[in-house]
């Protein structure tokens, strides 16, 4: 709940700090996002470069790359997801504890990228798992990953713990497991998860 900002600052001058549980909780969560240490292709190198000395992801509290999905909050899908790898990516995402977030890094992860025409590349990981932030670029610069992280932090700030718009993690009626695709005769089965992948219908504009 938002309280009067002027009253809040007046109280702060007197040494009284007033906040809500929700704000405090989100403030703590957004400043210690632990990503899953998980590289798929070229973008993973830029992800490592972001964590290294020059770009220094530690400034944003996200430098603790965890090798185990059980300890991670954020999955950075960095690189091309092939059809052989897609089931494993979804399974890793299922293994992460809630609340969890996904950044799709690079053209391949968001849409298949330059390899989209091929037979073995998934046309975007958002067909199977819900993606919070997309980063375009092939590969995106480290600054772009930092920007995506800040965007995600702003999104976490807005999360609700109660009420109608509460977080997926606190809603028992929401799904916690995502469908893991299997190999079919020609393609992955199903080719997309309709609960996650809801593209806007493409309407051909009227000819003038």
């Amino acid at each position: 709940m938002a309280m009067d900002e002027s009253l809040k600052s007046e109280l702060q001058k007197a040494g009284v700090f007033v906040t809500s549980i929700e704000q405090l909780y989100n403030w703590g969560r957004k400043n210690s996002i632990w990503p899953l240490q998980f590289g798929l292709a070229c973008c993973a190198i830029e992800m490592i470069a972001t964590a290294c000395a020059r770009y220094d992801m530690a400034r944003f509290g996200a430098e603790v790359f965890r090798p185990s999905p059980r300890q991670a909050d954020l999955m950075i899908v960095a690189g091309t997801v092939t059809k052989k790898m897609a089931p494993q990516v979804v399974r890793l995402f299922n293994q992460m504890p809630e609340p969890k977030y996904v950044i799709a890094m690079g053209a391949c992860a968001i849409s298949g990228g330059p390899f989209k025409e091929g037979y073995n590349v998934l046309k975007g990981i958002d067909r199977y798992i819900p993606v919070d932030v997309h980063i375009p670029g092939c590969p995106p610069r480290p600054e772009a990953l930092l920007h995506a992280l800040i965007t995600l932090q702003k999104q976490i700030e807005q999360d609700h713990l109660t009420g109608k718009r509460k977080l997926r993690a606190y809603d028992r009626e929401q799904k916690a497991e995502w469908l893991v695709p299997a190999y079919g005769e020609h393609d992955l089965e199903p080719p997309r998860n309709p609960e996650v992948w809801k593209p806007e219908p493409q309407v051909r504009p009227e000819a003038k």
């Binding site: 798929l40 292709a41 070229c42 190198i45 690189g79 091309t80 092939t82 052989k84 790898m85 494993q88 330059p114 390899f115 025409e117 091929g118 037979y119 073995n120 590349v121």
Partner: peptide
């Protein structure tokens, strides 16, 4: 093998000679 098979050779046979140069970048991305 095969977790990152991105059909590089098939794509190169579909496009002109010049078009493969950006794809060779992504072979060994270091």
């Amino acid at each position: 093998f095969g977790y990152l098979h991105r059909n590089h050779e098939q794509l190169a046979e579909k496009m002109n000679w010049l078009g493969s140069i950006p794809f060779t970048d992504r072979l060994d991305y270091f």
